[in-house]
């Protein structure tokens, strides 16, 4: 794999707080690398250093074989910030043309590229309307289009789908999968497990400024998650508390996790445990809507590694 980004021992402090702590990882051409972690984990600071707007205190960054300060290198990358960087009084097309000018793409070439991208992100009808009338999802899509204007070899996306509704998120995922290619590397930060799983070839899990685990998703699950997960759902979410008490009589507390009104039980031997849970909860009078064995997710990996859920950290 040809390396597009090589980060070694990167550290950034803000006063006493260490925002990024000796982080090292590589992103190769042809892959999407996901930086997964809760808000405040240091993802945005790490990205700001990679795109060259913040100076690291320690460590090195090699981008496309060169220094990020080099304008030739910068002209081959692009960055899509978490909050859409758009001008409300300009139209969608004007926003794209402005950003392309910063990369030396002007005139007819810029206009054609802007039209092509605006069509690709499904905003053709709104191309000549001021951005102030755009919805949140439309802004996110235009923000993404702006990051594609220079056909970057390295595309860096900071939380690209935060705040989007599920349908538009999937639309953006489809778009990102489309633009993925052997001549392009994509670095994406997210706190959505499903997003990381859906898009990333490799994932770096960040917490408190450090990458605590890194690798292909299957490898991470194999190494850090339990063999299987028993998911218990209830008709009445209030039953969750009673079920947890009941399960606590014979299971380790670390193997029982309550999520969104359901319970996940980590087990190495679900064939034995599943009938036992079913019988005991029935005897205790807990009404269950479903009881099934599911595959572990990245959420389970994060839980196992930190003892917390990503959303809990977000508050």
């Amino acid at each position: 794999m040809v390396i597009a980004v090589k980060v070694s021992g990167l550290t950034k402090r803000f006063g006493d707080k260490i925002a990024v702590n000796r982080v090292s990882f590589n992103v190769g051409f042809g892959e999407i690398y996901g930086l997964l972690g809760p808000n405040g984990a240091g993802k945005s600071t790490l990205i700001s250093m990679i795109v060259g707007v913040i100076e690291p205190d320690e460590g090195t960054i090699e981008v496309l074989g060169g220094e990020i300060r080099d304008s030739d290198v910068r002209s081959k990358i692009n960055y899509c910030p978490q909050n859409p960087a758009l001008y409300d009084d300009l139209t969608g097309l004007e926003n794209l043309i402005f950003y392309s000018s910063l990369y030396g793409i002007t005139g007819r070439r810029a206009l054609e590229r802007a039209r092509e991208l605006i069509k690709k992100v499904g905003l053709e009808e709104y191309a000549n309307k001021p951005v102030k009338i755009y919805s949140g999802g439309m802004r996110k899509r235009l923000n993404l289009a702006a990051a594609l204007m220079n056909e970057p070899s390295l595309l860096i996306l900071d939380e690209p789908t935060t705040g989007m509704d599920p349908q538009i998120r999937r639309e953006v995922w489809r778009l990102l999968s489309e633009i993925k290619g052997s001549d392009r590397a994509i670095l994406i930060s997210t706190h959505y497990m499903d997003e990381a799983e859906a898009l990333s070839d490799r994932v770096g899990i960040m917490d408190s400024g450090k990458i605590i685990a890194e690798g292909k998703i299957e490898d991470l699950k194999r190494n850090y998650a339990p063999k299987s997960v028993i998911s218990i759902e209830f008709f009445n979410p209030n039953e969750q508390h009673r079920a947890r008490e009941e399960l606590g009589r014979y299971l380790e507390p670390k193997d029982i996790v309550a999520i969104n009104g359901s319970i996940r039980v980590y087990s190495e031997d679900p064939d034995i445990l599943l009938p036992q849970i079913s019988l005991n909860l029935f005897k205790a009078g807990v009404k269950i809507a479903s009881l099934r064995v599911v595959k572990p997710t990245l959420e389970d990996v994060f839980l196992r590694l930190t003892g917390r859920r990503i959303m809990e950290v977000e508050g």
Binding site: D72, N78, P81, P84, A85, L102, A146
Partner: peptide, 14 residues
């Protein structure tokens, strides 16, 4: 305030 400064400075401009 518009959130554009980071994006502008991540481009090749000085």
């Amino acid at each position: 305030q518009k959130g554009c400064l980071h994006k502008i400075l991540a481009s090749p401009i000085t």
